[in-house]
Design a protein around this nucleic acid. Structure first.
Lengths: 196, 196
DNA sequence: AGTTATACGGAGGACGCCTCCGCTTAGCAA
DNA sequence: TTGCTAAGCGGAGGCGTCCTCCGTATAACT
């Protein structure tokens, strides 16, 4: 009896998935510390897998960068989701924006890597742009619906402002500066002119 | 007779200076094509010097990036100087801005490298920012003095706009887009509302 | 011409990249 | 359960790059 030439696929093996996850976690840690050109063998070591396994899951360094980055963007989206339960919509927005700054800050080494990947893969740019815009949009909408902030600012506007602000991340003390600017920005969007 | 313990320094050797120049030239070429992680041995090869010589002049890869970048910024400054003889001040400004875009375009691979270096060395950022602002300032001043453009735009403003526009250099076709935007921008600065 | 500080080149050891393949194991069917 | 096999694993090994070190060469100076 011939077995059908495999139209049905087996369920992906559990260990494969686990290893993939481990590598991503390790990569995040290693790249954050060692920058974009950290050794992939170090990543494999830290993940406790063989170098071959790493290469099977992520054939190129860029693939790994990309996967790590996607994960992070998705996590930001999840954070936005969670923040929906935060009582004050404006506070939720502020918190999310601040998290983003944190996100950029811890990725010092990765930013350069991302510049490369983004260049080569505009689909990734679109993907993250979409995710981020949607997250901001949701947070904005809630705050607007509550009448807490003005309604003529789009999610795109906010994202652009955010990116622009973080673009200064080469100067020392940029982080505090951006956090201040964000506070001002959020305050500026409030409707009631009564500041807290 | 003891020779004084070398308070006076010899004139730097001619071959050393020549080699340094060669390496910089080669590095510019190699990095433009091969990106930030091109082989340093390839650079030495192309420059026609030993690898040891390269390392003596530029102990780290970043040192080399930095030197190449400084040269380029200085060349942009020189271009601004030359453009002072251009009959139409506005045209001079436009030409310079367009050159800058070219500059960014050919440095595709280098941009990521620069992001790293800029992060680690804010003196370099200040240096280039200063040079660029001064170049723009000179071009602006001449155009303003000739009454061709409005006078309430600072060199910093122009630089910020320029950088912001080039920041989109991950999308395909960004270059044409930026060139168009620059034209609009320059047109917008003209005083007489009569377009050419 | 002689002296010497300065610079040169490239061999070599260490290390990272990536491929390849023999071994292991999870999923599946009987 | 048991056996089968596709899917997955690890790491040895070949190759290229990094960077140091040092014997040789030579420009600047006397």
């Amino acid at each position: 009896m011939e077995t059908k030439p495999q139209e049905r696929h087996r369920k992906p093996r559990a260990d494969a998935q686990r290893n993939r996850e481990r590598v991503l976690e390790a990569a995040k840690a290693v790249f954050s510390v060692g920058g974009a050109e950290a050794s992939l063998e170090a990543v494999a070591r830290q993940a406790g897998v063989g170098i071959g396994t790493l290469y099977r899951h992520f054939p190129t360094r860029e693939d790994l960068f990309e996967a790590v980055y996607r994960r992070e963007v998705e996590q930001l989206a999840e954070l936005a989701e969670e923040l929906k339960t935060e009582p004050s919509p404006v506070e939720a927005l502020r918190r999310w924006l601040r998290s983003t700054v944190q996100f950029v800050a811890t990725k010092k080494g990765m930013m350069a890597a991302l510049a490369i990947v983004m260049n080569a893969n505009s689909e990734l740019a679109a993907y993250s742009h979409g995710h981020l815009t949607r997250s901001i949009g949701a947070l904005l909408a809630r705050a607007v619906a509550a009448g807490e902030i003005r309604s003529d600012i789009s999610a795109d506007d906010v994202l652009r402002a955010l990116i622009g602000m973080c673009y200064m991340h080469d100067q020392t003390g940029w982080q505090q500066s951006v956090l201040r600017l964000l506070d001002v920005f959020v305050d500026g969007m409030k409707t009631g002119k009564a500041r807290e």
